[in-house]
Design a protein around this nucleic acid. Structure first.
Length: 108
DNA sequence: GGATTGACGTGTC
DNA sequence: AGACACGCCAATC
């Protein structure tokens, strides 16, 4: 297959609308790899190397916690980007996560 | 090709 | 509420 698992993850991540967030598990589920949320996170580690920009900052864990913020150039970048999109981040976790949560399955 | 590694998730203690 | 354990699965070493 020409399309790697990574690209599929990136594709979903790029579909996340501004001001919304999603979870690794949700993306994994959308790819049919439900339960393998680790693969999504693992793939996101490559998000810095893909051509179209991937809003990795809009992807958090099921708790809305910014687990991967330390992977950004400056870890604070992730929260800044989220706040810039109207998302309130407190204590490294998204506020009203359930409200701004964007379900890929809903788009697909 | 076996072993290790994760930006995770859910369940228990 | 916080900490710990196990499971899943592809990519990398």
């Amino acid at each position: 297959m020409e399309i790697n698992f990574y690209e599929q993850v990136f594709e979903i991540a790029r579909l996340v609308p501004k001001g919304r967030v999603t979870s690794y598990g949700a993306i994994a589920k959308a790819l049919g790899a439900q339960g393998s949320a680790r693969l999504v996170g693992y793939a996101m580690s490559n998000s810095h190397a893909v051509h179209p920009k991937v809003p990795a900052h809009r992807v958090v864990n099921s708790s809305g916690l910014l687990t991967g913020k330390f992977h950004f150039s400056p870890p604070e970048r992730m929260q800044q980007l989220l706040e810039k999109e109207g998302i309130t981040v407190e204590n490294d976790k998204v506020k009203d996560f359930k409200k701004i949560f964007w379900n890929p399955l809903d788009e697909l």
